[in-house]
Design a protein around this nucleic acid. Structure first.
Lengths: 210, 210
DNA sequence: TTTAACATACCGACTGGTTGGTTTGTAACA
DNA sequence: TGTTACAAACCAACCAGTCGGTATGTTAAA
């Protein structure tokens, strides 16, 4: 694949992402993508063998950049602090900043979107979404486990419960954000989640810093 | 409208609800609905003047039964306890039971679904969804305010923040439930939320009962 | 009480536009 | 010169929506 071809592919994916985010996958036609990119059927079917293939590649493309972002944020947080809870809290605040950054306005989560259009996707795609969410959750589980191991939580709670709650809170926040056209709602959910964490781990250093 | 006509209308709405929940609105064709109901175009367009009109009526129909359920659960909780926090906690556990009840398997939330298909709906529909979510949230705000007024929260928190977090947590839980085909994940989110509440309001009677 | 007049509730063939997808052609590059 | 990367015309299937028709009431005048 030449550089020019790769650029064309990205143009298609980028336009498709935007369209999918606002109309859903079934609601977006291939012609929509072509109109948005000034390309033609020939170009589209050169890069994707079908619309279902676009769904697949789009999700993988999205997940890749998404996971990269999370891994970067987490790596930065781990570099900045020794304490696992400090790392986690920095990760959360950094993520909140990302959520509020108007530079990333295609608001919403494509996993959620695919999940709500279930029937249109092949099992391979659905499994990939589930798998990606699992990987994402697993990342947090590890970190939460470190925190729990070091600090006794004020109530019994498992790392998995906290990890899943964080994912849920963000997904839900993004829905509210869209429904109310009110950017920042997802970030505010993350804040509340941090508040929960601080109550759960009162003996941790963040209290002393305050 | 005769009883028979009303029955037909409900058949159409019910089938549409199920189909929308699994394929999204754009992904569902009118023919899909007709196949599911063994009715014809004539019947459909007698009851709905267009597919957009179906979207509108379907959402209103859904919201009505949805709100009725919530109001009932809340009224029962208020009848069972005097203390606002006890009422809230009972409401949450009852709601969790509802979420886990296999009798309600069209899992997911239609507000979320519509929200992720934005562009296909008229503003009246989108506004209605936002308005319904606001009403829903307002119900919780009132209750949380009563709790906050009576018990000093362990951390500064507003009723609105808690109300929105609960909605977010449920919406997010439903997404996870769908993605992982794991019923009960939404209920588990509600449990975690309760755990947060119990940390926030440690002076409340639920601790003494335990 | 019959029956004519009308309304409601539904049927199903049909239409024009849109859909995802194919095929053929061509320009540029390797 | 062969292959890649795209263009453009094309197609069958499907889409939402229309329309002429029928069957089943309901009302009310004769």
């Amino acid at each position: 694949m030449t550089a020019r071809a790769e650029a064309t592919r990205e143009r298609l994916l980028k336009a498709a992402k935007q369209l999918v985010m606002s109309k859903g996958f079934a609601g977006m036609s291939i012609d929509d993508v072509l109109k948005a990119t000034d390309l033609t059927k020939g170009a589209f079917f050169h890069h994707f063998k079908s619309k279902a293939d676009l769904a697949d590649q789009l999700m993988r493309w999205y997940a890749e950049s998404d996971m990269k972002m999370f891994r970067t944020l987490l790596a930065e947080a781990e570099a900045a602090h020794d304490d696992p809870l400090d790392q986690l809290l920095k990760f959360l605040t950094d993520f909140e900043a990302y959520l509020c950054d108007p530079k990333h306005p295609p608001r919403g989560c494509m996993y959620a979107l695919y999940t709500y259009e279930d029937d249109h996707f092949e099992n391979t795609v659905k499994d990939f979404v589930a798998e990606t969410l699992r990987t994402w959750t697993a990342m947090y589980i590890r970190k939460f486990q470190e925190v729990i191991d070091r600090y006794p939580p004020a109530r019994h709670v498992t790392a998995k419960q906290l990890a899943e709650m964080f994912v849920a809170v963000i997904e839900g926040g993004l829905i509210l954000e869209r429904a109310h056209k009110n950017p920042g709602m997802a970030a505010r959910q993350s804040e509340q989640f941090r508040s929960y964490l601080e109550l759960l781990f009162p003996s941790a250093p963040h209290e002393k810093a305050a």
